[in-house]
Amino acid sequence: MTLALCTTSHTPLMGKAEPGADVSARVAAAFDEARAFIRDYDPELVVLFGPDHYNGFFYEVMPPFCIAADAESVGDYGLPKGPLPVDAEAARHIAAQVLADGLDIAVSERMQVDHGFSQPLQLLFGAIDAVPVVPVFLNCVAEPLGPVARARLLGAAVGRAAASLDRRVLVMGSGGLSHDPPVPQLRGAAPEVSERLISGRNPTPEERAQREARVVGAIAAFAAGESDLMPLNPQWDAELMALLASGDLERLDSRPNDWFVEHAGHSSHEVRTWIAAYAALGTAGDYRVETSFYEAIPEWIAGFGLTTARTVPA
């Protein structure tokens, strides 16, 4: 058994809005480094912690956590649509172990996932079906949210379960860092928006295209300085990345949910996927971050980070 890690921000604007040639080159170089790290590690299984953006999970039933024994990409923002190669046996084993560890987790035999899962697979492996995967959904958007400590405890339980598989497992976290995109909220929403947040599964291609065009337009206005969306916070991002690299994850347990929103935007709660991934890696012992990249990219409304890490031999 070995564990390694890769965490990455995601953005639906990648490929749709260009942040400048120099920024794009630095992002591309960072992904080249991460891909080389993954090739060297040669994972037999990927456990991918990811969020959703009201494409697969809705208020009709909104679990805080869910493990997929079967999953399909909805193909939003031009990303590939179709089934993920979920290792159902590994997924059910991990779910059973997490439940035995005392954490309540849902199991899906037909999960729908969006760019929060499909984009990192596409970017780091070249396809969404290139490697066996266990998708682990964390609710990072739909309030009310549980305390952030629960994400750490979930990650640790998943890490212990993954370690028992006796395989090379890459744990991944997809989301964050500071960003406050125009994601609708149920409280105060217009009736048609409220209905979509409650039961919006399987929109027509036209409905999806209209929604995505609105997001792209809103982020273009943000990048041009013509928006009241919360700005990116590179200092907050740097401090969070340093804390994760230190291994002292319990320091985040006392941070209330409002702290994330006030300093880094509503969608900064996606860093729960990073916290879970680092907690999973930490169950295998001390770890060392091998590559770390960060750039504040307004054109993608993302404090964009990418890290890789592996355990340090005893």
Rank of each mutant, 00 (worst) to 15 (best):
A68H: 00
P313T: 04
F293R: 12
T204G: 06
G20A: 02
A149S: 13
P144E: 10
V134I: 06
L306R: 00
T308L: 10
S73F: 02
Y294S: 07
N139M: 03
G159T: 08
I301F: 08
W274A: 11
L45G: 08
L243G: 05
V98M: 00
A162M: 03
A302D: 01
L123A: 14
F222C: 06
S9K: 05
V131K: 14
A162S: 13
M172H: 04
T2V: 14
L154G: 02
D258P: 06
S118L: 06
L3Q: 01
A25G: 09
M62Y: 02
I38G: 03
F57V: 15
D258H: 14
L177M: 14
A209G: 06
P205L: 06
D40K: 14
A130V: 09
A95H: 02
F304G: 09
R150L: 14
G56C: 01
P231R: 10
M111T: 03
V136H: 02
W259P: 13
V46G: 12
L306D: 00
G175P: 04
H263D: 10
V261Q: 10
V261R: 11
P184Q: 09
Y59V: 08
E33Y: 12
W274K: 14
E295M: 04
D228W: 09
A69K: 05
P63W: 00
L123Y: 07
G247N: 05
Q235T: 12
F49P: 03
G82K: 00
A276F: 04
D76A: 12
W236K: 02
L306A: 03
A127M: 13
P234K: 02
S118R: 05
N139S: 03
L84F: 06
L3V: 06
A127P: 08
S178V: 10
S164A: 15
F137A: 13
H179Q: 03
H269V: 03
D76Y: 01
D129C: 09
L170D: 01
A189D: 05
S227N: 01
E239T: 12
A130D: 10
L249G: 10
V169I: 13
E33D: 13
S9R: 05
T11L: 13
P191E: 06
A220K: 15
M14C: 08
A245H: 01
G282V: 00
L186T: 11
